[in-house]
Amino acid sequence: MNAAERPHEHTPENCRRYLGSLGDYIEGTLGVELCHELEAHMVVCENCRVVVNTLAKTISLYHQLPAPELPNAVKERLLAVLDLKPFLQNGTGSEDLQAE
């Protein structure tokens, strides 16, 4: 199971070749054959395994970023610029409860 047993699969050329497939792999849209090939490669190539894991983690961390709110003052100025101030809705729950 170690790299020495299947050295032919652990070459910079192989790692480079798989780089373009990582996006599809992470999203589960990579073809079955290439998927098996990449997974076999990851068994012997620790670097590629780390890259795949940390790439997926990077995406997941960005998905967890809290979405910034639209501050009420910004919305008010937008409606003013658009001549829509009379339509400003009050009590929509977007009041700024916390200091920014």
Partner: peptide, 27 residues
Amino acid sequence: DQAAYAQLVEEQAARIYRLALRMMGNE
């Protein structure tokens, strides 16, 4: 229709602001 303009702002402004903030990096 001004009410339609206001509805568009109501529904989309927060999303567009978020995009703009991430693209520009400052408020």
